[in-house]
């Protein structure tokens, strides 16, 4: 009996070695996060996940206010943001010069070109945050974006440290690790309020799920 169980264990070990040789496990990468200047996201979670897609969806005004926090963070910390604008609706006059200097604005015609442009920027890997703004694109236009697009982005980002932020009106991105649903930032009376204050009051819900191959909470310093 002992001999049989010993043989089985040996067989199991050799089988494991064979499998490990043929299908090596992907190394577990430490989860890194980038602070984006929003206390709700930075305080509890340490920022947005790097090397992953984050979808910000909901009210147009809420999304714009959250974007303003990210751009303020870019201006103060000195990093650049790629803004792939699906409907060319970004309005430079409403943004401070210091933040404009940190934006690479890519004006697109439709969802398909916006996705291609975002793909180029994400693959490039030079910009720590790439924003793909699909708000304002009609449902018919968004239906033209195949679901495989988002899986491709997930795979590309696994090997990079960029954050891909997808701005949508309705939840769209399949298998997204982080989805932030924002509420309206205010009515007309909000026009004189400072955006920094509006961010702190902005209603939002954050849905996070574990990312395969990403070690949560790990912080490597060497």
């Amino acid at each position: 009996m002992n001999t049989t169980s010993g043989e089985n264990r040996a067989r199991l070990e050799s089988l494991r070695e064979l499998m490990a040789g043929k299908f090596p496990a992907r190394g577990v990468r430490p989860e890194r996060r980038r602070r984006v200047g929003c206390e709700r996201l930075d305080g509890e979670r340490g920022g947005l996940r790097q090397g992953a897609v984050t979808e910000i969806t909901g009210s147009a005004s809420g999304v714009q206010i959250l974007l303003s926090a990210i751009l303020r963070s870019a201006a103060s910390e000195g990093f650049y943001v790629g803004l792939v604008d699906g409907t060319s609706s970004f309005h430079p006059a409403d943004w401070p010069d210091a933040q404009l200097r940190r934006i690479l604005w890519v004006m697109c015609r439709d969802a398909a070109t916006a996705v291609r442009a975002a793909d180029l920027l994400v693959r490039d890997g030079n910009l720590p945050i790439v924003v793909l703004d699909l708000q304002g694109i009609t449902a018919a236009g968004l239906r033209g974006v195949p679901a495989s697009t988002w899986h491709r982005f997930h795979r590309i980002l696994e090997e990079r440290e960029s954050v891909l932020l997808v701005l949508t009106s309705q939840p769209l991105v399949e298998g997204v690790p982080t989805r932030i649903v924002v509420e309206p930032a205010g009515g007309l009376e909000a026009r004189l309020q400072e955006r920094a204050c509006m961010v702190t009051r902005l209603g939002m819900r954050v849905f996070e799920r574990r990312v395969a191959g990403m070690e949560e909470g790990a912080r490597k310093i060497a």
């Binding site: 303003s68 303020r72 909000a190 026009r191």
Partner: peptide, 13 residues
């Protein structure tokens, strides 16, 4: 980090 007057209100789309 510069604060500017244009950093008020909801930005227009």
């Amino acid at each position: 980090g510069e604060a500017e007057a244009s950093e008020r209100g909801i930005p227009l789309r």
